[in-house]
């Protein structure tokens, strides 16, 4: 961004005035929702496009590891549940692309950014799912962590993003519940089943704790995002909520949290030990994990679906009066 107004903070872009910003922030502080036709700072628009499109891509890429398990589901019941969950993720991606489009970016541009790896998505989907129990653990922990973040975003200041989030949260609770049910049943099952659940917890606990983002001290965008009512809580606050809910429930299921330092403090909060961020950053940078494979799978879907889009276009362009069937 070019710094044309040296005396103003950098979130005030060229052509914007502190008075406009003050009026905008007053609306947000009064609990008003910002709608697409309203005045908004250029930086607010830019940050929202970044966040919402990343979020949409995460829903779309989130389908890929789960989709691989549909044909391997152990029962028809679990297969129908998993299919419904994957369908939901596709729908959630669509809700979010719609919300981002209201800010002046096209769906085509966003998908292009995903496929050329210019846009990010949650790196949690680049971790491998090793056994069927991982499918349940992903539902319980990854969706559980995502719901904490999404519940916060449902209260955000941008109307279309907030509405998409309210709709997503109401559907996502099913994803969380089905995963929790599956793991609790495995944990009560045969020794082999219990071990499967424990192994899945060992694989997913730390990635789930990390997916809520770096510590507040290392999160560069938090200041602006909280000033504008986009993030109502910090990464560490959301992480604490996630841990507080899940630690007692995992313990009750008879599982062991892979964190020897986990303990309850005098306020009742469950406190985690030091987080080793090495793997998190390595997966984000693509040095580890399945980032290349995920985008290749998404690109293949795009390429293999080209004939469907072309057929639809030919159908749309057919001469008027030609029978549809």
């Amino acid at each position: 961004m070019t710094q044309t107004q040296p005396n103003l903070p950098k979130y005030i872009s060229a052509g914007e005035t502190p008075e406009q910003h003050a009026a905008f922030e007053a609306r947000i502080a009064a609990g008003e929702k910002i709608e697409p036709g309203d005045w908004m700072p250029a930086e607010y628009r830019r940050q929202l496009i970044r966040m919402i499109s990343q979020h949409a891509h995460s829903e779309v890429v989130g389908m890929l590891p789960e989709g691989e398990w549909i044909s391997k589901a152990p029962t028809l019941k679990r297969k129908t549940i998993l299919m419904a969950k994957v369908q939901d993720e596709a729908g959630h991606g669509q809700y979010l692309y719609h919300a981002a489009e209201t800010l002046g970016i096209t769906r085509e541009e966003m998908i292009e950014a995903l496929l050329t790896r210019k846009a990010k998505y949650s790196s949690i989907f680049n971790y491998p799912t090793t056994t069927w129990a991982d499918v349940g653990m992903v539902g319980w922990l990854v969706d559980g962590a995502a719901i904490k973040n999404q519940t916060m975003l449902a209260g955000c200041s941008y109307g279309p993003y907030s509405r998409a989030m309210v709709r997503i949260c109401s559907e996502e609770t099913f994803h969380h519940k089905q995963g929790k049910e599956m793991i609790v049943l495995y944990a009560q099952g045969t020794p082999e089943q219990k071990q499967m659940a424990q192994d899945a917890l060992n694989r997913w606990w730390w990635p789930a704790v990390q997916m809520l983002g770096p510590h507040d001290s290392d999160s560069p965008n938090t200041g602006e995002l909280s000033r504008w009512g986009i993030k109502l809580k910090t990464n560490d606050e959301v992480r604490q909520e996630f841990i507080n809910e899940h630690v007692p429930e995992l313990m009750e299921a008879g599982l062991t949290i892979p964190d020897p330092d986990m303990h309850q403090d005098e306020n009742g909060n469950w406190i985690h030990g030091p987080i080793d961020w090495t793997e998190f950053w390595a997966v984000i940078k693509g040095e580890r994990g399945l980032g290349k494979e995920r985008i290749a799978t998404r690109q293949a879907a795009q390429d293999e679906g080209a004939w469907v889009r072309e057929a639809l276009e030919a159908y749309m362009a057919r001469p008027k009066g030609e029978a549809a069937d």
């Binding site: 502080a29 609990g31 209260g155 200041s157 109401s170 909280s226 109502l232």
Partner: peptide, 27 residues
């Protein structure tokens, strides 16, 4: 005593507490 209350009972916007909306419960 195993399950603590909510971590952040009062969400904030910047330094200001967020206005309590009459929000509909998520159905």
């Amino acid at each position: 005593g195993q399950m603590p209350g909510r971590v952040n009972e009062h969400p904030h916007v910047g330094d200001q507490p967020a206005v309590k909306h009459n929000e509909e419960p998520v159905k």
